[in-house]
């Protein structure tokens, strides 16, 4: 199996603050990989480095063999990034937004139609984005990230701001697209249920370091607890 993402000894400083401390892990092609950890653990920093937005202070990060420092342009051709608090161009309609993204990523028309379907906004797709609720906007952004069928989708809290029904819908869409189009997904989430449902493997991150890594079952077994939530609490030094 090919390696989609390789990270070795990744260190990142913000001024004097060490955000990542010798982070090391690999993500296999076609895998849905979850990063789980408390606020400030370094999840978003890791995702931003993979997405070529931030540069590592030291260490190596490769996406399908391309070093993110040396070949950021090549990496960007392979990825689609969804930030946690992303917005969309307020004065475009939902449809115009997806069409614009389609042109940027040179995808065929039927991919855009799929994007419209994933967003499931009904008639609102022809309304300007500024009229959308937070949940509608998030669905549109997830649709944008998936419809381009990247080789690597980087999703930071993909269901944040969504109600239960829409969160479930988006999770299914992520799962469907990852399996159907062999899209590798690396995501972060605070929702353990989501991680348990979606991810093939999970990395527990705390204070910029990987505390543990494995499938949900492996982690539950390793920590001797009942579910991933308890794994998380134990991993960061809490008592279950």
């Amino acid at each position: 199996m090919a390696i989609a993402v390789e990270i070795y000894d990744l260190i990142k400083f913000y001024g004097k603050v060490k955000a990542l401390d010798r982070l090391t892990f690999k993500v296999n092609e076609g895998e849905i990989f979850g990063l789980v950890g408390p606020n400030g653990a370094g999840k978003t920093t890791t995702l931003r480095i993979i997405a070529t937005l931030l540069k590592p202070s030291s260490g190596i990060v490769r996406v399908f063999g391309y070093n993110v420092i040396e070949k950021p342009g090549e990496v960007r051709k392979l990825i689609s990034y969804l930030p946690e608090e992303a917005g969309a161009y307020r004065f475009l309609t939902g449809k115009e937004y997806l069409e614009f993204m389609g042109k940027i990523y040179h995808i065929p028309r039927d991919f855009i139609e799929e994007g419209i379907e994933i967003a499931s906004l009904g008639g609102a797709i022809d309304r300007q984005i500024r009229t959308y609720s937070k949940g509608m906007k998030r669905r549109l952004l997830v649709a944008r990230a998936l419809m381009v069928k990247p080789r690597l989708a980087i999703l930071d809290e993909p269901t944040s701001g969504l109600d239960v029904a829409h969160a479930l819908y988006v999770r299914n869409a992520i799962r469907k697209y990852a399996k159907e189009y062999n899209v590798t997904v690396i995501l972060s989430s605070h929702n353990m249920l989501e991680v348990e449902y979606l991810c093939d493997r999970v990395a527990l991150v705390n204070e910029g370091r990987i505390v543990n890594i494995g499938t949900t079952e492996e982690l539950i077994k390793r920590y001797g607890v009942r579910n991933l939530e308890e794994v998380f609490i134990k991993a960061i030094g809490g008592v279950v």
Partner: peptide, 14 residues
């Protein structure tokens, strides 16, 4: 302001 910059900077464009 609209938080679109991060996505813009990951476009496959120089």
């Amino acid at each position: 302001e609209e938080r679109t910059l991060e996505v813009l900077l990951t476009f496959p464009i120089s």
